[in-house]
Design a protein around this nucleic acid. Structure first.
Length: 565
RNA sequence: UGGGCCGUCGUCAAGCGGUAAGACACAAGGUUUUGAUCCUUGCAUUCGUAGGUUCGAAUCCUGCCGGCCCAACCA
């Protein structure tokens, strides 16, 4: 018992948010309840950065037997769309989190929010302002100079009530008036300089249609929505720290029955990737990638199509931790989490990406042998499959070298290697075309090495994967790499186009797979022996056309040695 | 230059006054029918910096330096 507890503690380390939550639980502040929320604005696709927020919001609730709501923060109809509310839900579900029946929209509260605004006016804590956008900016002051009061700040409660009512009725043009909080134009915190509560905006809303022409602002909406839902801990990213006094001001001023606590943590950045919504949008709009779910995109749907698993992403977020220091996690950690899972789970299979033909000159012309191959050496329960062997085979072009350095222990003239699950073969001859390109490699096989070993236990260092020519299934394989050439594309001066890694995707159309792959299903993960982890493409894979995406390569210590040669 | 926040190994990150966890990365060995996996070992006399308090400081205090965020009718 105590052992498992220790293991669990080690796997899920604590963090400052949990410490606060635990203290609140102990003091009884929240009546023993933990209730969080994930509040995306439906104006873009979820990405790896959101995954961290999702893991924290849903994870904290889970850890303390609480609940987490999904709430769309849809107060700005101009940039929001149902396309996004659908994709966001799909992505969160895919990650494995469940909001049960608690799917909410800030727009559900528009009527209540309006009533709260009226309340504020009655308390003389809000007023209708006639200043236009430029004037508001001028009156706001700067970072170092205080702002000054609007000439409309002292309107009577009655006049404000009337004006606000008429704002709602549509008597004024867009931008003509705003409802503002009456706080302090001299505050060193810009957010407290009479922040706007409502603006007039005639835009079609994805849920409320055209019933409203005024829409509430984030700060006003968010704290009250949290309050309405009985949220205990409102977790968000660092840039909202300055907004906390305002979050608290609305709730305090309106004397709401409960007062959620906003806690801020550092958002996640990852090397070689971008998480700016604007820039991701640009990549898609300018067709620098093939859509939001391009396997090179850091979007959840992109990572999914690339072959990442939900668990590997969640593990990554757990391992990155939760803190307040700005940070950029190494993408190598994400890949590590993925390999760790796939090494244990993925079925091994042989696929030759860049084929060259091998002819076994002493192997009977029409003979075919079916060898048993284990599906996963890490897991005997994964069973075995049959792999056909014959006189002509494909091997990887890079597994043969005419003038091989000493440390190269793959195939070269006169050298013996093992064909995985097959036989030992020795290279006897090389056939080339008129341009000097290798077209065939002639070898002899040792009949006593059937299955890939011999009684004399002679050392054969190299082991190659292969596919029988007459049984080979053509396949398309897409190799993916970092989308950007630089570690921190967000900080670069170059344009996105200049930063794109020209080798971020390489399409191989001449790959050959062993016949077992005919049974693969879209989104099934494999380890192509000695090559890496691949996934059958979610959309384009079929029995007729095999399409695989490389999720991540295997660690390659030979590449490091070769680099030094 | 006003306000808020942050500075512990290349990257994340524990640490909460008692003498620097862990992970990834990296390096060196060993096992291996995947140059994979796995295993072993190494990797911060030092915590942005300078003082101070203390028997004792990464942890407390003060100054300085560096970074991030805020002047949308965005969230």
């Amino acid at each position: 018992m105590s052992e498992t507890t220790e293991v669990e503690l080690r796997e899920k380390p604590s963090n400052f948010i949990k410490e606060i939550v635990e203290a609140d639980l102990e003091s009884g502040k929240t009546n023993g309840k933990v209730h969080t929320r994930f509040p995306p604005e439906p104006n873009g696709y979820l990405h790896i950065g959101h995954a961290k927020a999702i893991c924290i919001d849903f994870g904290i609730a889970q850890d303390y037997q609480g609940q987490c709501n999904l709430r769309f923060d849809d107060t700005n109809p101009i940039q929001e769309d149902v396309e996004y509310v659908d994709s966001i839900q799909e992505d969160i579900k895919w990650l494995g989190f469940d909001w049960q029946d608690r799917l909410f929209y800030a727009s559900d509260y528009f009527e209540k929010l309006y009533a709260f605004a009226v309340e504020l006016i009655k308390m003389d804590k809000a007023y209708v302002d006639d200043l236009n956008q430029d004037e508001i900016r001028e009156y706001r002051g700067t970072l170092t100079e205080p702002g000054k009061n609007s000439p409309y700040r002292d309107r009577s409660v009655e006049e404000n009530l009337d004006l606000f009512d008429r704002m709602r009725k549509g008597e004024f043009a867009d931008g003509e008036k705003t409802l503002r909080s009456k706080i302090d134009m001299g505050s060193p915190n810009m957010n407290m300089r009479d922040p706007i509560i409502y603006r007039i905006k005639r835009a079609h809303h994805h849920r409320t249609g055209d019933t409203w022409c005024i829409y509430p602002m984030y700060d006003f909406t968010h704290c009250l929505s949290d309050m309405l839902e009985g949220i205990t801990h409102s977790l968000c990213s660092l840039e909202f720290e300055d907004h906390r006094p305002l979050y608290d001001w609305y709730l305090d001023t309106l004397k709401t029955p409960c007062h959620p606590q906003q806690i801020e943590f550092a958002r996640l950045n990852v090397t070689y990737t971008l998480t700016s919504k604007r820039k991701l949008q640009k990549l898609v709009a300018e067709k620098l990638v093939n859509g939001w779910d391009d396997p090179r995109m850091p979007t959840l749907c992109g990572l999914r199509r690339r072959g990442f698993t939900p668990d590997s992403i969640k593990e990554f977020c757990d391992r990155v931790g939760v803190a307040k220091a700005d940070s950029t996690a190494d993408i190598a950690l994400l890949f590590h989490c993925l390999r760790e899972e796939l090494n244990a789970d993925a079925k091994r299979v042989m696929v030759v990406l860049d084929p060259v033909k091998v002819v076994l000159t002493n192997y009977p012309e029409d003979q075919v042998e079916w060898f048993d191959a284990d599906n996963n050496p890490e897991n005997a329960e994964a069973g075995t499959r049959k792999v056909p062997f014959s006189r002509e085979l494909y091997i990887e072009r890079e597994d043969f070298m005419e003038d091989a350095p000493k440390k190269y222990f793959r195939l070269s003239p006169g050298k013996e290697v093992r064909l995985k699950h097959g036989y030992y073969i020795t290279c006897t001859d090389v056939v080339k075309d008129s341009d000097g390109n290798i077209t065939e490699i002639h070898c002899t096989y040792d009949p006593d090495s059937r299955g890939g070993w011999t009684k004399d236990e002679r050392k054969v260092k190299g082991t190659l994967h292969w596919v029988s020519v007459k049984h080979a299934i053509p396949a398309e394989v897409r190799l993916y790499d970092h989308l950007f050439t630089v570690e921190n594309p967000a900080k670069s001066e170059s344009t996105l186009e200049e930063l794109i890694n020209p080798e971020s995707v390489i399409v191989l159309k001449n790959a050959f797979a062993e016949p077992a792959l005919l049974e693969a299903k879209p989104e099934e993960h494999f380890q192509f022996l000695r090559n890496g982890y691949f996934v059958a493409d979610r959309y384009e894979f079929s029995k007729e056309t095999l399409v695989f995406n490389r999720t991540v390569g295997l660690r390659d210590s030979w590449a490091k040695i070769a680099d030094k040669l």
